[in-house]
Design a protein around this nucleic acid. Structure first.
Length: 287
DNA sequence: CGTAGCGCCTGCCGGC
DNA sequence: TGCCGGCAGGCGCTAC
């Protein structure tokens, strides 16, 4: 579920409360997520200090110092995950799988990992965040962050110019650029006026420039709005995002295009994922 | 190497 | 009311 803006919103919330916190206890209620949570996680993290909470791609990256060693946890929210902070040990919600009890200078907090579908994961490896991201199988082949200058149109053209997949699939490919998921892929292509069916090898330099600009723009605006809440995404303080009000095409099948006001938004399945576009604004010019 | 398809799992919604 | 199909913000694995 969460794409880059929702994960970014989540880590900003966590950093508001948990900086330099000490992990007093870890409770694992259910370990069978995408990968089994290692059974020594509890013991290894106990009395560790949270050194940093950052984001890489859609992973929440938590670096923890403990005695003479450093560990880094990579937390992925999958399709339906979220993290929430409670100020008191309230009753657990359904699908709360892990809880960290964290003591900070402003008090004790209960951080819960909730994930109904359990497509998310929590993995941990010895080393600091940089070392683990560079070496871990899940993160060592990731493409550039979309909001950095490493992601530019020259790079994108280089990665897609000989690809036969659709541009929609390519911008969702985390080896090409990270963070773009199913909502923001449709939105960015709409803003760039590029039809999602177009193949990578047919994208012009001009279109690549627009795609890059629009990916950056849509992600930045979504972060400002606290992300998109379709069903149940809430940030770490339990509040929803507000970007769904600004969506041009996602989830608007059969509704009038808000830009051209001429035709209805269409939904088609591309690579097993719902794809929304305006057949007028994103018309394919066949020569 | 690139591409296509499957499967992991729970919940919700609409139609009958 | 209940059952069933379809759908859901991700991504790794496999086969070709």
């Amino acid at each position: 579920m969460p794409e880059l803006p929702e994960v970014e919103t989540t880590i900003r919330g966590l950093n508001n409360y948990l900086q330099k916190g000490i992990i007093e206890k870890v409770n694992v209620f259910r370990a069978d997520l995408r990968y089994e949570i290692p059974s020594d996680l509890t013991q290894k993290l106990k009395w560790g200090t949270i050194h940093s909470i950052t984001r890489r791609s859609k992973y929440i990256v938590v670096e923890i110092d403990n005695k003479n060693s450093t560990f880094t946890a990579l937390i992925h929210l999958g399709m339906s995950g979220s993290m929430q902070i409670e100020k008191s040990p309230t009753r657990l919600n359904k699908h709360d799988h892990v809880e960290w009890v964290i003591m900070t200078s402003s008090g004790r907090y209960y951080l819960r990992y909730n994930d109904p579908r359990r497509f998310g994961c929590i993995v941990m490896q010895q080393g600091n965040a940089f070392e683990v991201l560079k070496s871990h199988k899940l993160t060592n082949k990731l493409g550039p962050e979309p909001l950095t200058s490493d992601f530019n149109s020259e790079y994108l053209v280089m990665k897609i110019h000989n690809r036969k997949s659709s541009i929609k699939q390519l911008i969702m490919n985390q080896h090409i650029v990270v963070g773009v998921g199913n909502i923001y892929a449709s939105e960015a292509l709409f803003l760039a006026k590029v039809n999602p069916h177009l193949l990578g090898n047919s994208i012009t330099d001009h279109q690549a420039k627009l795609i890059v600009v629009m990916i950056k723009m849509v992600l930045k605006k979504a972060i400002e709005k606290g992300g998109t809440t379709l069903r149940n995404f809430v940030n770490s303080e339990g509040k929803p995002g507000y970007f769904q009000q600004e969506l041009w095409v996602y989830g608007r099948e059969g509704l009038l295009c808000k830009k051209c006001l001429k035709v209805n938004i269409e939904r088609e399945v591309i690579a097993q994922r719902s794809t929304f576009y305006c057949p007028n604004c994103q018309y394919i010019n066949k020569k």
